[in-house]
Nucleic acid binder design. Sequence first.
DNA 1: AGGCTTATTTATCAATTGATCAATTATTGG
DNA 2: CCAATAATTGATCAATTGATAAATAAGCCT
Lengths: 223, 223
Amino acid sequence: MKQPSRARLRTPIREQQRLDPSEREAIIAREAVSFFAEYGFEGQTRELAKRLRITQPLLYRYFPSKEALIERVYQDVFVERWKPSWEKVITDRSVPLKARLVHFYREYAEAILTYEWIRLFMFAGLKDLGLNARYLKMLRERAFEKVIEEIRVEYGRPSTDELPVTVLEIEMVWGLHAAIFYLGVRQFIYSMPLETDVNSIIDAKIATFLNGIRPVLPAKALV
Amino acid sequence: MKQPSRARLRTPIREQQRLDPSEREAIIAREAVSFFAEYGFEGQTRELAKRLRITQPLLYRYFPSKEALIERVYQDVFVERWKPSWEKVITDRSVPLKARLVHFYREYAEAILTYEWIRLFMFAGLKDLGLNARYLKMLRERAFEKVIEEIRVEYGRPSTDELPVTVLEIEMVWGLHAAIFYLGVRQFIYSMPLETDVNSIIDAKIATFLNGIRPVLPAKALV
DNA sequence: AGGCTTATTTATCAATTGATCAATTATTGG
DNA sequence: CCAATAATTGATCAATTGATAAATAAGCCT
């Protein structure tokens, strides 16, 4: 942080030190996201400290344990990156349904198709913890079920209040979700660069999805 | 470990010991598959030994290192479980195309939609090693490209020899693959039991796939 | 039965690794 | 400029963990 007051300032050999606690904490959390995404949660605290150019015990000044740091990573990646506005995008009936879905899924894909999100989510799943099930329950309530309700309305079918979402309907939405998620898996877990534009794939999948879901929608209500 | 030779034989409290080397090796390899699938490759050799009811150094009698044992696991799961007969199923033109695809994908799904296969594949991917890219290259050559060739023939399009597989075509196949694979992810990584029959999902996905791929096939050849 | 081969165990090493605590030093307020 | 606060480091602990070597003992062969 400090530049020796009277030293000739060539290349600043030493970088800053003694940061403001809130700043240091943010820096550690940010680097931890990148670090654990790369090495998994078995990544060593010493290695993380080295990347941060600090000593390993300093981590424990800011986080009581490695587990607490990992919890922070979950929070920053899986909770903070969910945008509540997406729920409004899905349900805004002043916009055509297909456009809404394209809007939502493009933005959602942009949020989760990152090295950090995809790998951390998979690491978390393999470790269990129930984090994934919890996240996907949230996703189902805030997105999947809303999508189905909007489709029901669009095609004049019974509301999901009258007739709960069926297994087949939810399975169709899962299929769309799988297609998007798998793009991330190919890139960031299999290290296979995509040869196509993500948005165009998403658009195509949504078109296929909207066609495919019609046959599995419940019959029109008897008014 | 030993059963006193003249002891009255009630419940055989201790099991056998001093197995034939080939048998012991097979037992270790089998348990290692299950063990690493559960805990990942950071699972400890002592823990594995405990599950095998043997001591940890004995593992090193049969495998020179932990890494060698992991290689064996890869071999047994990813190489041995691929059935060459599948390639004949795909290309057997005495059978209708859709039936062939259903046949292949159902059997393939049965092979990979297991706790061991799905989790080990994901663990391997996160660790890198290029194993996944290698496997998927094999899958592309032995299955994906054959599938596309058969579809081309079915619809009277140019052979993949004349006109190589296009990005859009392969992307369609990836989509089908993703749908199947993701069923395994939901079950064995997210611990979310499926509410539907796998085969019926596969059948539906194949139907959708065959519809969706028509528009992306290259134009008919000018004969 | 007895001895020999070798499968298996016991003991142990060296390197890691999460965590703790006291010493150090950068920075601020007076 | 100096002293107090506290951010940062150095030293170190205890538990793990992959691996090795010597001791033990199971079971086959004659």
